[in-house]
């Protein structure tokens, strides 16, 4: 009995420690974003201080950050929209018309993820340079569509497979054609999981770094690149501003966490 109790105590202690380690580092960064430089550069960490909004005001007032933010929103948003418009129908076709090619196609889509990003970025850099499209939003949208389209397809196939076949059969009996069944039956029923798939592909390109680093130099720089440039500043580092820009970069993905954990839940629901 007492062994069991001791085990439970230790187990819960480890869980508490893990939970603390999961959230504390980012919370600490968020806290530092509201500090003046003198309160960050202290020999002992400060938990109580006079908060300031100067860091955020500076970050949001900087042209480069604002440009990075709009670039990120336009590029990620467009790539995700194209990925969803083309990817959802493709995923439905793979889920509902499993011909002999379906497995190979699915493997092809998955295998795109095996490509090392640097192996895609180097040749694309040369291609965009030669086409005169280097460092433009258009080239970034096209490049990121490779990521969003593959991800949307890959994650949506199981979502469509979970739509009960009987519902689609009933609609067919009622005289719906194959396209009407997709738009008016399958799409609405699977919508919750599909939104999760789309949100995931957004987070993926919003967070993407290596390709953006190699394919942009000034005009089309995305927010992760701008933020990383701030983190490489020289000796007299403006720590507060750095923390604020990291927080700003992290807000959009964190806003989607509810949708993403909902997608996880429906993917692993007990099968019976």
């Amino acid at each position: 009995m007492s062994v069991r109790r001791k085990g439970r105590f230790v187990g819960r202690f480890i869980l508490a420690l893990a939970a603390f380690s999961a959230v504390f580092p980012f919370l600490w960064t968020a806290l530092n974003a509201f500090k003046n430089r003198v309160d960050i550069v202290t020999p002992t960490p400060l938990f109580f201080f006079t908060p300031t909004l100067d860091n955020f005001a500076y970050v949001l007032g900087r042209g480069s950050v604002f440009q990075g933010l709009t670039n990120s929103l336009v590029i990620s948003g467009s790539a995700v929209a194209i990925g969803a418009i083309l990817g959802l129908p493709a995923a439905y076709a793979l889920a509902r018309y499993p011909g002999k090619w379906a497995k190979d196609i699915q493997f092809f889509v998955l295998s795109l993820r095996f490509l090392p990003p640097v192996a895609v970025a180097i040749p694309l850099m040369v291609i965009w340079l030669e086409l005169g499209l280097y460092d433009t939003r258009l080239s970034m949208i096209v490049t990121y569509t490779l990521l969003t389209l593959a991800t949307v397809i890959w994650l949506s196939v199981p979502a469509f497979q979970r739509v009960p076949r009987e519902v689609e059969e009933a609609a067919r009996v009622d005289g719906y054609g194959p396209y009407a069944i997709f738009f008016r039956i399958a799409l609405p029923i699977a919508s919750r999981s599909l939104i999760g798939a789309i949100a995931f592909s957004f987070v993926l390109v919003w967070n993407e770094f290596l390709i953006a680093l190699m394919l942009t130099t000034s005009d089309a720089k995305t927010l992760p690149i701008v933020a990383s440039e701030l983190t490489q500043l020289g000796r007299d580092v403006p720590w507060g501003i750095l923390n604020a820009s990291v927080v700003l970069l992290s807000i959009p993905p964190l806003l989607l966490i509810g949708i993403l954990s909902g997608m996880l839940n429906s993917a692993f629901r007990r099968k019976n």
Binding site: A22, F26, T29, N207, F209, L249, S250, P253, L254, L264
Partner: peptide, 16 residues
């Protein structure tokens, strides 16, 4: 709570 670290941009996680 355990989902938050992986959702953070890698650049943010690295800086944190």
């Amino acid at each position: 709570m355990f989902l938050t670290p992986v959702i953070l941009p890698r650049v943010s996680a690295a800086f944190v």
